[in-house]
Nucleic acid binder design. Structure first.
Ligand SMILES: [Zn+2]
Ligand SMILES: [Zn+2]
Ligand SMILES: [Zn+2]
Ligand SMILES: [Zn+2]
Lengths: 137, 137
DNA sequence: ATAATTCCTCTAGTGACTAGAGCTACAAGA
DNA sequence: TCTTGTAGCTCTAGTCACTAGAGGAATTAT
């Protein structure tokens, strides 16, 4: 039987975050000690590691909730789980694309400034006028 | 004299967002009509376009506030403005790096699943065990 | 004059936590 | 056994950059 602090140390998930996940329905409400403190078992540890890993990979809470639900029906086909991952990959790629455009534009803007007065500053001028940009954002 | 709705249409910034920018101190409190409605002039339009463009480039509100303050001292050297842009570029690059790692890991995970049952699903297995990952996140 | 639209302020909600207040439970040492 | 210190509990509010909605007033068009 682990306290919430033990669980936290072993998974690297902070104590308030564990309580938050319980509130969000990712973790079942834990058993309680006589003094009303949460007590966890080994499978809670696995569940929490799963959640943490999914979060580290950028999945949001509704997606994780769905994956947990799916993982409890081992006989079902896994298309839905695969789709969640694939959709997330698409979203990640879109973010990368947007950020690359920003990176490109920022590089260009910064390199065009000679670093003298604000009056001539290309950074300020570029911000004032999107017409100076190469692409859209 | 423009109403807040006119300003919104010409800049593409939504009406509540304009009021929010005023509250955040990015725009000076506008003059009011007899009936207490905001009335804007041409230079408010430029200011708002500046803010919008800076936001589109991903700058946050404190950074924009600082850039606006700087832009009102044309004789000062522009190192601080350039630094804000450069710092932002660094942050953008860091985000891109993180997302590329995620992209790589997600691609790998998805391609390893044969798409049969949940029991064998590589997506679920990979989420359960970071040891199956190639990198850190 | 009336109706339709726009405007006002204020509050609360978003996502995924984090911080803090005020209180209680538990574990270890004297 | 008592005491102290750490860890736990609940509840509220704050983060960021907005967005949505309520309830009412002003403006514009017909
Ligand atoms: Zn400059
Ligand atoms: Zn631009
Ligand atoms: Zn699968
Ligand atoms: Zn991993």
């Amino acid at each position: 039987m682990l306290s919430i602090g033990d669980l936290s140390k072993r998974t690297g998930v902070k104590v308030p975050t564990i309580r938050y996940y319980e509130q969000m329905g990712l973790i079942e409400a834990a058993e309680r000690s006589e003094g009303n403190q949460r007590r966890y078992e080994r499978n809670d540890l696995e569940r929490l590691a799963f959640i943490r890993h999914a979060r580290d990979l950028g999945l949001d809470i509704p997606a994780i909730r769905e994956l947990i639900a799916l993982s409890q029906h081992p006989d079902l086909p896994c298309v839905n789980a695969d789709r969640i991952a694939a959709d997330h990959l698409v979203a990640v790629r879109e973010k990368i694309e947007k950020l690359k455009k920003l990176e490109h534009e920022l590089e260009r803007i910064i390199s065009h400034c000679d670093g003298h007065s604000i009056e001539d500053c290309y950074v300020i001028r570029a911000l004032s006028d999107h017409g100076l940009c190469e692409g859209e954002h």
